[in-house]
């Protein structure tokens, strides 16, 4: 589990991702994944979610990172 770094990786916890980077929420919704607000999101990783919903991990993570990067670039 990677909860202490700021990177979005397959083993990053879902709950941490959406809490630390709310910009990722629309990505979950767009991919029709019901992770946002899930009572077990703090136990499951992004890879778990992709496995459950049968989504390609690399592509999904790329979109999450892009969403985060977009916010970061606006802040900069």
């Amino acid at each position: 589990m990677v909860e202490d770094t700021e990177t979005i990786e397959p083993d990053t916890v879902i709950d941490w991702t959406v809490t630390e980077h709310p910009a990722t929420i629309p990505v979950f919704l767009r991919w029709r994944m019901q992770c946002v607000g899930c009572p077990l999101a703090r136990f499951e990783s992004l890879a778990d979610a992709c496995r459950i919903y049968q989504r390609p991990v690399n592509q999904f993570l790329a979109e999450l990172r892009a969403a985060v990067a977009q916010v970061d670039s606006r802040r900069a």
Binding site: Q34, C38, P39, L40, F43, E44, I52
Partner: peptide, 11 residues
């Protein structure tokens, strides 16, 4: 809980 997602679906 072995398959968390399915339990959430039931709940």
């Amino acid at each position: 809980i072995v398959r968390p997602h399915e339990l959430v679906v039931i709940a």
